[in-house]
Computed example of a mutant assay.
Amino acid sequence: MKNNFYIKVLSTVILTIFSFVVSAEENTSEHEYNIYAGNFDFSDHKQKAILVGFQHQNEKLKKDTFLGNISPITGGFITENSAVYLYTGVEWNYVMGDKLKFTPSFAPGIYHEGDGKDLGHVLEFKTEVQLSYSISESTNLGMSYNHISNASLGDKNPGANSYMFNLLKNF
């Protein structure tokens, strides 16, 4: 049953990447969408699971600050074990040369374990770092790593470490 899930996720990601690259145009948009897939809690061999997710960033709400270019994000993911995390927060964008971008972020959110890992509390905090490479004016490919924790709000705080492959597209 897990193999069917992997095939569906991989097929969806490949078709999405293909459609985005084929439709690449000049970046005149106000919205950046991040579609990602990866491995939830890869450091816990008993609880690791495939995840797929989606994130939105409104380009019009970006602000230049002393910490760099900051903007709000909203998103969520689901794992193969039906765990769900919905979040909203902020990210900082640091352009490194012509093609690379480094993006750390922080996002509190609501977690439901489904048949997956019990993280100890419904309120969880996601810290993430992402490195992306521009393949066109409006499309980036990236890789990210995040840690989700409840900051000891619950009776337990096992946390979860995840990595993802990202497709970022401006519309």
Rank of each mutant, 00 (worst) to 15 (best):
H45F: 10
L100N: 06
P108R: 13
S149E: 05
F54D: 02
I73C: 05
Q55C: 01
G38S: 03
Y87I: 00
N150R: 11
P72N: 11
K156D: 08
T127A: 10
H121L: 02
N58M: 04
K60V: 01
G68I: 05
H112N: 10
H45V: 08
Y111I: 06
T127C: 03
F102Y: 15
K48S: 14
E59W: 04
G97Y: 12
I73K: 06
S149L: 04
V90F: 15
G75Q: 09
L100C: 02
F40N: 12
W92L: 06
W92S: 14
S82C: 00
A37I: 01
M96P: 00
I148M: 05
I135Y: 03
A83G: 13
A37R: 00
E128V: 00
Y145C: 01
D44S: 12
S134G: 10
T79C: 09
F106G: 04
G109V: 05
G38Y: 01
L153P: 03
T127G: 13
G75M: 07
P72I: 05
V90K: 02
K156H: 15
S136I: 08
T127I: 11
H112E: 08
D118C: 01
D44W: 10
Y133N: 04
A107K: 07
G97N: 07
F125M: 10
G38E: 00
E128W: 00
H112C: 01
L119K: 11
A151K: 04
H45P: 10
L51E: 14
D115W: 06
A49D: 13
Q55K: 06
